[in-house]
Nucleic acid binder design. Sequence first.
DNA 1: TGAAATGTTGGGGCG
DNA 2: ACGCCCCAACATTTC
Length: 468
Amino acid sequence: MKALVWFRRDLRLRDNPALAEALACGRPVEAVYIHTQHNDSHASAGAASLWYLHHSLVELQKSLAGIGVPLRVFSGSAETRLSAFCAEIGASNVYWNRVVEPAQEAVDQEVGKVLSRAGIIFSVFPDDCLIMPEQAYKKDGSAYRVFTPFWRSLQERLETQPLQARLSPLPSGSRQPIACSTADLDVLQLLPEHPWHLKLHAHWQPGEVSAQRLLETFLEIKCAQYETHRDYPAIDGTSRLSPALHFGEISVVRVYAACREAGMFEPDENTRSGIRRFLSEIGWREFARHMLHAFPQTAENSLNARFDQDAAWEPDPGDRLLYAWQHGETGIALVDAGMRELWQTGWMHNRVRMIVASFLTKNLGIHWREGARWFRDTLVDADLASNTLGWQWVAGCGTDAAPYFRVFNPDTQARKFDPEGRYISRWLANRLQAPPIVDLKASRARALDRYQRVIRQTVAQSPIKRSE
DNA sequence: TGAAATGTTGGGGCG
DNA sequence: ACGCCCCAACATTTC
């Protein structure tokens, strides 16, 4: 009988608990990836993300072949495909790593039932998080709602838990390499027909090897000035690890452990603070997973439900304002530059993400849900938890959110963080700058007015109460 | 991980 | 020398 590894968002060989365990069991090992399409659900991946996935799978298939493990891919639902494939190849055991996302937890439940009925033994391993979300609640069982205490307690707990146990060496090539053709990946139809995605190759190199190189580059070069460079979108000062972390091309445990090790005996104060700051960004990723686990409805709705009523937003007939924002035609230089970077590269610098998000929700008065949807469709690193937290943070309707009155002025931000206009001219070159579609000052005032009314309303004043 | 309005202070020009 | 005004520069408050 064989052992089967079900790959999901752990597209790597190194530090892969499920793969390591399967290889250790002594049976012949095969691997499978199943692509499930959701119809316009917030769980479905966008085109840029699917492009990344396709090429990451190509790399995974090649490296698995190098250790004698064939990878097969299917479209369809995991519960039907998995059991069928087990029967086909004669697998008695299935191994996989958890994906910490509500819809995926539900898939695990279904798959577990089906496999049990078929008499197949399965093992699920913790992954995707430094600490599994159900272990990240406060002592009284309630969820953390503020980042700082959450991150502090998580770090304290990591001090006492040996991370080394969750890492494993690269599987050796003791097995016979097998021939591999990546042609069958095309059946998943992850790539769109129109070849717009070809431009993404100039900016991204999917795969485990590239992910490890990004981490090395960060620790050897970038972290020394991360604290300052991270704020300047014209500078390549960030790790660019977000898509690799999303797809699990590198383990977040490995990233954390490597950073801690690098910071341990580091004499340079700038380097130490750079590493510390970078780790806190990893912390926000953890926080986002914890939040979505505790409040799964926030993927669709504001945690503060008052923000989902019409009064919190402005009408946008024909979605004209939304369209202008999406296509970088707002007439606000930094916003348009950011939206163009996103469209061209499938990525946007984090400071600019905050600024374009603030502009959409506050200056244009459009629900954060629309922005989140666009990001999901266009980002190579689109991640439900991080995206949800980020948008609600900016909109001011989530946990530990920015206060509603914190409105970025894109022009002021450009003067501060792109003083020479390098970022703006990079993405707006050869482009006539249209007049702004909104007046920054007036729209800011309207936003403050709107939010103030929404926030201040008491339960007694709500339409539901009154109608009684 | 704001920005704008408002308040305070202190140096310098000037009568 | 002195008071007055102007206005940066900085601090505080407010949204």
